[in-house]
Design a protein around this nucleic acid. Structure first.
Lengths: 129, 129
DNA sequence: TATGGGGCTTCCATTAACTGGAAGGTCAAG
DNA sequence: CTTGACCTTCCAGTTAATGGAAGCCCCATA
C-alpha cells in the first residue's frame, strides 16, 4: 500500500507519516520504484500513533508504548504507569486552563466592550499576579 | 535597572526578556556599558506580558494587546473582542482535554496493571476512533 | 505515442516561544 | 589584583510537524 492510502486509513497526513519514518517510529519497506510499501503491521502502528497522539501522548511516550506493544512479554503494569502519568498531566493541564478561564472570564465580564477607552481587561493585565 | 532585576520583578527569565526585545515587543534603552536599562514603562510592559502569556495569549495576541494598551484612544470593545476569542479557545481546549481524559481514564481503569501481559490500554489504542 | 494530472520521492526551510551554552566584556567586594 | 556574579552577542536545539521546490513515476485518454 502506498503512502496516500496509508494516510487515509490511519487518518494522518502523508507528510506526518514520512516524518514518523524519519524519526524511526516506523520502517516501511520500499517497492522497486522507491515508493514506501506499507503492510498491515505498519498500518496498525500508524493507527496506534494517530490515536495516541490524539490523546496527547508525546512522541517519546508513543515510542515507549510502541515498544511495549511489540513486546509480547511486557507487563501491563508498565503500560499502566505511562498512561497513569499522562493522565495526571492531563488533569494538571485541565486545572491550569480552568484557572486561566476563570481569571480571563471575570476580566471580560467586567469590560463594557463599548467605544470608550476604559478597559478593565487591560487594567487587570497590568497588575502582577 | 539591569535585566536581572527586571527579570525578578516581572517574573520572567532574563533570556525571555532578551527574546522579547529581539522580536520587538520591548525596546529598552542601553547604558554606556551596553547593558539594557529598563525604565518603569518597560517593566510595566514586561509584567503585562508575563501575565498575558500566563493566561495563554499568544505572542501575537500580546503584541496586539500591547498596541491597544499604548493607544490612549482605543475602544474597550477591541480589547474585549480579542479576549473573548481567546476565552472561546480556552473553552475548546478544556473540552478537548476533558474528552481525552475520559477516554484515557477508562482505558487505565480497565487495566489490571499487574505482571500479566494482557493490557486493555494497548488494545484500546489499537482501535481506530 | 504523446501528454496531462496525480501521486510519489528527497531536501531544505519555517513555525512558536523559548532555552542552553560558548566566548567574552563589566563591575563591585575584598 | 583577583574572584565571582552579571552582562553581552551569537549559534544551535527543542517539539512535532508543515510548506514548498524540483524532479521521478504511473495511468488514462486523445
Amino acid at each position: 500500500m502506498n503512502i496516500g492510502d496509508a494516510a487515509k486509513r490511519a487518518g494522518l497526513p502523508a507528510k506526518t507519516i514520512r516524518y514518523y519514518e524519519d524519526i524511526k517510529l516506523i520502517r516501511p519497506d520500499r517497492d522497486a520504484n522507491g515508493y514506501r510499501a506499507f503492510n498491515d503491521k505498519d498500518l496498525h502502528k500508524l493507527t496506534f500513533l494517530s490515536r495516541a497522539r490524539a490523546l496527547g501522548f508525546t512522541i517519546e511516550n508513543c515510542r515507549a508504548l510502541l515498544a511495549l506493544w511489540e513486546d509480547q512479554s511486557r507487563a501491563s503494569a508498565d503500560v499502566k504507569r505511562i498512561a497513569g502519568e499522562h493522565l495526571a498531566e492531563i488533569d494538571r493541564k485541565i486545572a491550569d486552563l480552568q484557572s486561566m478561564r476563570d481569571t480571563l472570564g471575570s476580566l471580560v465580564q467586567n469590560c463594557a466592550g463599548d467605544g470608550r477607552p476604559d478597559c478593565p481587561i487591560l487594567r487587570g493585565l497590568e497588575e502582577p499576579r
